[in-house]
Design a protein around this nucleic acid. Structure first.
Lengths: 199, 199
DNA sequence: GTTAGCATGTAAGGAGTTACATGATTTT
DNA sequence: AAAATCATGTAACTCCTTACATGCTAAC
C-alpha cells in the first residue's frame, strides 16, 4: 500500500476548507483567521496546520500556489509564501463534510464550525444542522436531569451548583436554537438578520 | 534513564485522585463515577483509565488492593476485582494538583473538575480557583469584544449570532462566579447552600 | 446452559501540542 | 545593522480513543 495520504478526519480539515472556500490564503494568515471560526481563544498551532495543508493538497482538495506577493520573478530558488487555493473537488468535499449527519457532528466544536460557515451552506442543510444540534442537546438535558433526580440527595452543594449551571446553559442554548430555527423557516434563503436587536 | 513512569499530566489523573479521595473503588465503578465529575456526557474509556491507574500506582499515589469482594480465600490465582485506595502521598499530591495556578488550570474542563471537588478543598484554595477562572473569562470577554469591534461589519449575520451567543454565555458564567465568590466570602468554611432557590 | 453485564487489560492509531530549526521581510 | 514579526516546516510527545482479547458472575 502506498503510504501517502494519512487520515485527516478532524475539525481542522473542515475549518481550513471552509476558510479557503471564501478566498485563497497562505498558511500564516489562515492560522489567524482560524481563531475566528474555532472561537476567539483556542489558536491552532503551525505544527498541526502545515501538515494538514500538505495532506489536503495530497488529496487534490487544494493546490499550492507558489506566489511571491508581487509578480516579480526575482530569484527562482526563493521559498516564497505559499497561497493555498481550493479546487473544484475541494469545494465539493467541503459541502459533503458540512452536510454530514453522524452523531459527533453535533458536538460543541463541530457544530460551532458548521454554524460559522452557514453563509456558504444550503438552506436545507442549515436547518438539518440546527435541528441535529437541538436534539443532541435534548439528549444531554435528559441525561443530566435523570442523573440529577437519582443522585440529588448525595451531592454536595458545589456539585449541585455546577450541574445546575450546566443545565441552565444548555437550556439557554436550546432556546437560542429555537429562535434560529424559527427564523430559518420564516425566510429560508435569507440570513436571519431581522432577529438581531430584540434583546 | 529508567523508562518507568510515563508522564501523566491530564484531567484524568486529577479526576481519579479526587474520586478515590472520597472512597476506595475498583476501576469499573470509577469509570461510571467519572462521568459525574467530567460532565454527564463524555465518558472516559477503559483504554485510558486502566493504564492511568497503573501509572498512578507506580508513582505510589495509590495502591491496588486485590480483594475478591467477600473475604473468601477461595482459589489463590483468581483475578478478582482490584480496589484502588489512595495513599497519604496520593492525598498530598491531589491537594497540590487542585491548588495549582498555571494558566491552563482555568480552562473549561480543568475548572469544572476542580469545582466538582470543592467539598474536599480548602476555603482559601476554593476562592483562588473561583477568582482565577473569573479573570480567565474576563480575558476572553476582552478578546471577543475587541475582535467583534474590529470586524463587526465584515461578518455575516450567522457568525455574528454565534459570537453574540458565546459572549452572552461567558457573561452569564461571570455573574454566576460572582455569586459563588460572594457566598464564599460571607461564610468561608461553609458550603454555599443558602444561595440555591432564588431563581 | 447461554446470554447479559461485570471486570480488567493491551496494541494501534488519531488529533492535536510544544519545542525546535530556518529563512525572508519590515521596522526601528 | 539589530530587532521584530512574517512565514514555513519537522520530530517528538501527550492524552486520549477504538478495537480487540479475556475471563468471571448473575439472570433467564
Amino acid at each position: 500500500m502506498s503510504p501517502r495520504a494519512g487520515k485527516r478526519g478532524g475539525l481542522l480539515e473542515l475549518a481550513v476548507l471552509g476558510l479557503l472556500h471564501e478566498a485563497p490564503m497562505h498558511g500564516y494568515e489562515l492560522r489567524k483567521r482560524l481563531s475566528g471560526v474555532l472561537g476567539t481563544f483556542h489558536a491552532i498551532s503551525y505544527g498541526s496546520l502545515y501538515p494538514c495543508l500538505k495532506d489536503l493538497a495530497g488529496r487534490g482538495w487544494l493546490i499550492e500556489d507558489e506566489a511571491t506577493a508581487a509578480a516579480a520573478p526575482a530569484l527562482a530558488g526563493k521559498r516564497g509564501r505559499i497561497v493555498y487555493r481550493l479546487t473544484a473537488e475541494g469545494k465539493e468535499h467541503f459541502q459533503a463534510l458540512v452536510g454530514e449527519a453522524g452523531p459527533d457532528a453535533w458536538e460543541d466544536d463541530r457544530f460551532g464550525v458548521r454554524l460559522a460557515f452557514f453563509g456558504r451552506t444550503e438552506a436545507s442543510v442549515r436547518l438539518r444542522i440546527l435541528e441535529g444540534r437541538r436534539s443532541r442537546l435534548e439528549e444531554r438535558l435528559d441525561a443530566v436531569r435523570s442523573s440529577l433526580a437519582r443522585t440529588r440527595e448525595r451531592l454536595d452543594s458545589y456539585t449541585l451548583e455546577l450541574q445546575q449551571h450546566g443545565l441552565e446553559s444548555v437550556e439557554r442554548e436550546v432556546r437560542w436554537l429555537d429562535e434560529l430555527i424559527a427564523s430559518e423557516r420564516e425566510h429560508p434563503s435569507t440570513s436571519p438578520s431581522s432577529r438581531r436587536g430584540d434583546r
